[in-house]
Design a protein around this nucleic acid. Structure first.
Lengths: 414, 414
DNA sequence: CAGTGTTTTTTCGAGGCTCGAAAAAATAGA
DNA sequence: TCTATTTTTTCGAGCCTCGAAAAAACACTG
């Protein structure tokens, strides 16, 4: 079962910890790192000397941000941007976007492309992905050998091993092992992540104050997705990517969901469901394939205008989300929530019914104290999360000698 | 945030690992331990020599279970029963039970007592607990100083720190810091656990094959409780003890629950709910305070006899449990389930509707493959779980020098 | 402008821990 | 009794972290 700690694991872990501290903090000094990690000054000094020697860390200018303190000035440590690079591939409905990010987290190359994901063949989909990655790798400004990892993100269900997409609403094709395919093609370790999980990762980096140990990111888009961080760790299911919050049952036997079942939260709160209710089409009406963001904004405007079916549609969405969150909070206790996606811009229309519903549930005991935040644009968040995910992998695995990355050639920079 | 690994942590962790391997396996030899922990023979040899010297481990008889192999026979290592002892206190409806367990896991002293928990004052409840613990500690056969930890279990909600009962159905009193009270009284570290979590812990020790990394224990009793193990660890909420599965919402605005809200799973599947439906009393009828096990058995017998309101009551219970599990499985993926408690004996009446309901949910995609096990008697399970919990604490903390137990006098045996 | 105080960083020896290899121990079979 | 085999212990080597002391790098002072 659990494995003992070997002697060389020690250095490896502490190295990773130093790298982690540098990535988090803004140019921390050796003394600060010693304080946060609890290790001794001598150890930090030794490790950072090694890391600087290996070209992973760099010493900042000593006079940076005029130190007005008495003694020897602290010298900040930073990540060497050239130590490595990672690539992010975000595949969403009708849209493919790729970016190359240096080790310090700056975008150095990117490309975006419109596709018709809903109708493309399996081969075409895979082909587009490998082609766009290849084009970025062939960028003359880029040192190919420095790309140490690729992280893909997709809406839908991925396996826990982060190797394959199992199912996605953006394509009728299923079970595509994107990670394995890209690894085989380019010899670079790759992982296949769920988009909402990456949103959660990004939120944690953006605002570690608010999104710390326990929080929830909910994507309000065509479907409803969720990324969950519990006790400081991304929560994933036992077999698949993460919580299918959108498919918790709100009303047994209720409205028809895109997944073919009935009464899911999504069947009340997804864009297609809001549209269906706004048009008073009846709960059995087949969900439409896509609703444009503009259309949703029109809907929200109409709902704000007058108390008609549009407003009622948002109310129903709020109710479904509220009861769903209530059931979720019965399991994990309440936590801060970030609402992301088009409909997050209409959260003012959703919130009253949501809070009312949540107050009816066990998890909503102190429903007033549950805080919501909104972020209408999910794409940048997903990309950021992917980048941080990939970089963290690099931090942990590639630069911790002795343990190579899961697969592929663990390129080491020395 | 995360803390570095110090040099002395190494030995401490590896010691705990060796102890853990001995507790799990049946008299493992040093070679076997080396294999399972991945540490070298020399390390295991050194650590086990220490532990034997400290009186924590003992060497078994070499000729035990006639070794018919060629070379030097393996000598099995076992736990020294006298190394320490723990006490378990299980507080359930109208019943208090205490046991003292030696370091090897054998019960050496116990006592049980009927109480009227529903009407007792706060002071009386605390008084009964401290009194029964004191009596056991005064047992002349027992070396008081060897009792290294007390684990309490109670039905209801406890805090994540395992210090206090926050709310329990067995008493109207709330927020009793049992762990702190016992620690202050006896100077022995104590924790306050949730009963269903302890059931899960016990199941894992009883049948590690089946209940390994991911599984669910559901208590079908007056209320509905849940213990959840995910990725090999007990899952607890962010603030409180664990999943309030019974209070996930099954039907918004539905049947009246004991908790005062409406539509909870428990309001359909708890004993009082089954009784209420069997008597066709209407969903708004106030839940009764207690239903005897005999009464539930009569109900189940009647349901098996003919297709009357009793059978319909169990069907509704199954439906609620099925949709609840379906929503849960949407979040965590399906896992084996153990049904525990009186109504688990009536699982034949519950299962058909449960499976039908679960098949309607996202989590029930392969509903046929989800396996259920039943165990009608929860008390022994809770007690066992408590004992193992306490012993594991002792293993991890007390015998890992340098880190004392959370509170109280971390008694060390040398 | 040299001296002093202060804070950060490095250096160095001590003490631990794990590991691999070799030796010792304990048995079954020849 | 000897030999082969397997388990366990012993021993030196190689790392790693730590504490204390030294060195470095500045601000302030007179």
């Amino acid at each position: 079962m659990s494995v003992g700690i070997r002697h060389d694991d020690l250095r490896r872990r502490n190295r990773a910890m130093v790298i982690g501290a540098v990535r988090r903090g803004g140019q921390p000094s050796r003394t600060e790192i010693a304080a946060t990690t609890g290790l001794s000054h001598s150890t930090i000094s030794a490790i950072s000397a090694d890391l600087i020697g290996e070209g992973i860390l760099t010493e900042g200018k000593p006079n940076e941000a005029g130190s007005l303190k008495r003694g020897r000035p602290q010298v900040g440590l930073g990540l060497n941007p050239e130590a490595a690079a990672v690539m992010t591939v975000v595949l969403s409905l009708n849209f493919l976007s790729v970016a190359v990010i240096d080790y310090a987290g700056q975008v150095i190359s990117e490309e975006q492309r419109r596709l018709d994901t809903l109708t493309m063949s399996r081969e075409a989909l895979i082909g587009e992905c490998t082609a766009i990655v290849r084009r970025r790798l062939e960028d003359p400004d880029l040192d190919v050998s420095s790309v140490a990892r690729i992280a893909l993100a997709i809406q839908g269900i991925t396996d826990t091993e982060a190797r394959a997409m199992l199912w996605s609403p953006i394509t009728p094709r299923t079970d595509i092992a994107f990670a394995d395919i890209l690894e085989a093609e380019f010899g670079i370790p790759a992982t296949m992540e769920n988009d909402c999980n990456m949103m959660a990762v990004a939120l944690r980096w953006r605002d570690p104050q608010r999104y710390r140990d326990d929080f929830i990111a909910i994507l309000l888009s065509h479907g409803i997705g969720m990324g969950l961080v519990l006790k400081g760790e991304l929560f994933t299911g036992t077999h698949s990517s993460g919580g299918e919050f959108g498919h918790m049952i709100h009303r047994p036997g209720g409205a028809l969901c895109r997944c073919g079942r009935r009464g899911c939260v999504e069947a009340y709160a997804g864009n297609y469901a809001i549209l269906r209710n706004a048009r008073q089409l009846g709960e059995d009406t087949e969900p439409v394939a896509d609703v444009s963001d503009a259309q949703m904004r029109t809907l929200a405007a109409a709902a704000r205008e007058s108390d008609g079916p549009e407003r009622e549609a948002y109310r129903k969405a709020g109710e479904a989300l509220g009861y769903g969150l209530g059931s979720l909070f019965a399991l994990i206790d309440p936590a801060p929530v970030a609402m992301v996606g088009v409909s997050a811009a209409a959260f003012d229309l959703i919130e009253p019914a949501l809070r009312e519903a949540i107050a009816q549930t066990a998890g909503g005991q102190h429903s007033g104290s549950i805080s919501f935040d909104t972020e209408p644009n999910e794409l940048p968040l997903i990309r950021e999360g992917c980048a941080m995910r990939a970089l963290t992998f690099v931090d942990q695995e590639i630069f911790a000698p002795g343990v190579q990355a899961k697969t592929g050639s663990g390129k080491n920079v020395a």
